[in-house]
Design a protein around this nucleic acid. Sequence first.
DNA 1: TGATTCTGGATATTTAGTATCCAGATTATG
DNA 2: CATAATCTGGATACTAAATATCCAGAATCA
Lengths: 160, 160
Amino acid sequence: MSEGVEWALHSCVNLAWSGPDRAVSAARLAAWHDLPAAYLNKQLQALARAGILTSSPGPRGGFRLARPLASISLMDVVAAVEGPEEAFRCTEIRRRGPGAGDPAAEGADAADCAVAHAMTRAELAWRRALAAQNLDEIRQQAEQQAPEAAGRLRAWLAAQ
Amino acid sequence: MSEGVEWALHSCVNLAWSGPDRAVSAARLAAWHDLPAAYLNKQLQALARAGILTSSPGPRGGFRLARPLASISLMDVVAAVEGPEEAFRCTEIRRRGPGAGDPAAEGADAADCAVAHAMTRAELAWRRALAAQNLDEIRQQAEQQAPEAAGRLRAWLAAQ
DNA sequence: TGATTCTGGATATTTAGTATCCAGATTATG
DNA sequence: CATAATCTGGATACTAAATATCCAGAATCA
């Protein structure tokens, strides 16, 4: 799993803390946690393409949340950053070499590989668990641990 | 997820099909599905270190299952091949840059990052789903789809 | 004794992830 | 209108991890 997921999740919470009326540039979001600005910008673009953020160019431009945190699941963010591919990808080794069965008997509509089927089932459990958690829950827990976090971010943004 | 997981799962089922009394060399297991022998050997070594397979050198040597398929879960194999690290690893970006809170206030025993906590919860669901499935279930499903698979493998091994 | 095979380390190759840079388009501000 | 700030997307470079090969040593069987 790429680091971009961690950056994206924190950035979304930071955007919520920064308030609904201001856009925050990729450069400032990156500086807040000392991340590479140009690379974080790529992740934020992916979030914007996925409809999680909106973006606007120009002075006073930047990124902001496209919808309330409570309506953004971890799955939404992971899918936006990591893409649609499954972590386990079946390469159909059972169809290669002497172990490959009779191609005619199996045909194009052969049943799914039992190994791939089992791995996919586990991955679905992971996706369900991601979809069951939303960013507002994360924000609440983070605020319990550090109630001053939102205020510090807003103060720092105002001073930039 | 590395391809080694797919190879390892298929190889375990193939070892079950090859019968309990014979060891199969890495070279033959690899040839059966046209895999790189030396590299598959590395995965099999990992399975042996994890107690899933046993290995013996010399002529008539090779790998065999250390215990019944039904007592080997997908989680066992994935852990053996992929290692103990979590797919999502928290790099604690919240502690870097201006966004880092007062280090004294947080200290060494600071609460877990809310983002990491949520991602870990999803990963636990994945692990549970892997642990809930064993290799014998996979073998049974594969035999339903291709009842002749075990016989073909044994015949091919005998001809080697 | 010789052939077979695992073991583990060293090394090379390939791919994916990380990171930077730039030219173009858009927009706020003075 | 001119300037500066910012996103967009492509091109490119760098780094780390996965993939793959090779070899010397030890164990084992015939």
